[in-house]
Write a protein that binds this DNA or RNA. Structure first.
Lengths: 343, 343
DNA sequence: CATCGCACCGCAAACGTTTACGGTGCGATG
DNA sequence: CATCGCACCGTAAACGTTTGCGGTGCGATG
């Protein structure tokens, strides 16, 4: 099943077989046909280790993902959609996508170093980027092509794609203000992740733009999970001066919010206006319908892939994008979870 | 950064360096220390291609996963939890887990062949196994170690782990009957996936065991998504002789059911008893609380990893399990979604 | 007819490991 | 002192590719 056996069977040198298979010009069309036919018949496929060793390239792109369910920033379906978009691009270039999950007890930086040292991939897509992310500096220092899903302060000029947290925060606050709300809480993620800062800054700016004073008591932080939402809602309910509306940094929180409100005999929307974040499959079927924002994760995946290829020497000319730093727009999907305060 | 440079810098042959790094016995303890120190100082790490080429092994385990969000079969953090369990085992053996997502437009069998021919992994974990699954025959024929998450009729004696669909169906029917229900619907997945048959057979057997006639009109099939649940619920509501209870094959369906019932002005539980499947993070925060079943996906992952290692020659003696065919038990979590019919 | 160019192919090195085999030197044993 | 065993190390082959270089043969050109 090696190229040697294939060559012996054809009475051709292995060099010619290799050239024939790789579509090089200096090989007789007839022999090429013979080689391809024999390869197919014998089920030959080039050994990846041999090829990688010789060429120094793997034709594999790695996607690092954290699997900590306790504090997750995204779920399975989020990533699946992104993967799908990424793969539509890679399929055209015979590149394979492999996902490299980071164990919940592992440090993401150690995990990345391991990935790099194992030479899994020619390029990497990083998710769950931190505000200060040593992984980014590490990759830049090593000259490894990469792109991140999520902004970061580290590394300066690398490529990234991110969701429009500013837009969502600003639009949500504006919408709630227009509907009569002035006491608007924020359910944010814990510090560390960059979107936490981005989201809160935009929230504060939006409040200021509408002449509303910032109240740190109603800016909460917790895990981005259903349980996190439940707990944050509980905190809000316990406040003496309860907010009339809340803006969520993630739609998973909404599920916990809905549950906690129900337990208190309250109705989401009527008793507390809620604007979620992304229109996930789960959020889409909440009732009352969650007001949130739509974006195509498939398209985000496509853009991620293209941005990565744009940084790889072998593909740079096919995708002349330079360094991409793109905030992905999101479209409001009005629901029934944020009705006017005094109808 | 190659072993050659390392050897030159130490004035030792590369063979000795290799032996020192790999912990072989016939090397002087002092030189081993020197080698290890120098390797660390120079940041040396063995090239994986070279090693794989020589040894014919990759120290990588692949996990195939479908990324079709339209017909997805698991909840939003299902795989993450499983990955985490798998990695806790693999970490002890310096094995790396890589996830190999199958593009939604790809045939899973083609995808597997590609994975195999690229020699990504020493062993594989297959998910989304079909009732008849050519991938299983293919792997057996090639002698590639694997284990599947989910039963299949193919391949005879391979190892698999599966959830207890029989137990859930039987227990759910029994519980509903005990609470006065006799007209019990089934919300099942589409044909093809094995659990569809297993689940329905157990449902029918349970009905028969309680002397209830089987009515094909209230056995529905659809996608295992929130939308699928929504649509199935709609079908049930349109029936002239509406069932008073429904057993779900997957908790994602519950989210759609809840929504559709709300839209009809009905209350889950009171107007239609619902027993879901797994206690996912999403299902956990439904209100009224969904009656469902708990299992530790982390532990399933651990078992998957161990079962796979038990089939691999290099680890067989460490995990003398033989071929594992295990139905994972699930524990009832009573909720408020299935109250007695006539209290 | 001599020469050139070109199409095609074989040869062999190189990528970075691991490992079987043999060799050296030294202490211990007789 | 001769011999043996052993601890340690170097040598080189092998894994499967790709690719630069050179060589062969043939048609075309002068």
């Amino acid at each position: 099943m090696s190229i040697k056996e294939l060559a012996q069977r054809l009475n051709i040198s292995i060099g010619t077989v290799s050239r024939a298979l790789n579509g090089r010009a200096d090989v007789n069309p007839d022999t090429r046909k013979r080689v391809l036919a024999a390869a197919k018949a014998m089920g030959y496929v080039a050994n990846q280790s041999g090829r990688s060793l010789r060429q120094g390239t793997t034709n594999v792109i790695g996607f690092t993902m954290e699997t900590n369910v306790e504090t997750k920033t995204h779920g399975d379906t989020f990533f699946m959609s992104v993967f799908d978009g990424v793969q539509t691009v890679f399929a055209r270039h015979k590149l394979d996508l492999v996902v490299l999950p980071c164990h919940s007890e592992d440090d993401p930086f150690d995990h990345l170093r391991r990935v790099v040292s194992r030479q899994f991939a020619d390029g990497l897509i990083l998710s769950a980027t931190q505000r200060q992310d040593p992984r980014i500096d590490y990759l830049i220092e090593r000259g490894i092509p990469f792109v991140t899903l999520g902004r970061s302060l580290s590394g300066g000029e690398h490529s990234w794609i991110d969701m429009d947290f500013e837009g969502v925060a600003a639009q949500s606050v504006a919408r709630l203000v227009a509907r009569g709300h002035t006491r608007i809480a924020l359910a944010n993620t814990t510090r560390g992740i960059n979107l936490s800062y981005v989201f809160e800054d935009a929230y504060r700016a939006a409040l200021a733009g509408h002449g509303i004073a910032y109240d740190p008591d109603i800016v909460l932080r917790g895990d981005i999970t259903e349980l996190g939402g439940y707990q944050l809602c509980e905190k809000l309910l316990a406040l003496p001066n309860r907010p009339t509306a809340v803006v969520l940094v993630n739609e998973s929180l909404a599920i916990g919010f809905y549950r906690r409100l129900h337990e208190a005999g309250l109705t989401p929307g009527r008793d507390m206006a809620i604007i979620g974040f992304r229109q996930s499959p789960q959020a889409r079927f909440l009732s009352p319908a969650l007001t949130c924002y739509r974006l195509s994760l498939h398209d985000v995946g496509v853009e991620l892939a293209q941005s990565l290829l744009a940084t790889m020497p072998a593909y740079k000319d096919l995708y002349p994008l330079g360094t991409v730093q793109k905030i992905w727009p999101m479209e409001l999907v009005p629901g029934e979870s944020d009705p006017p305060l005094h109808p």
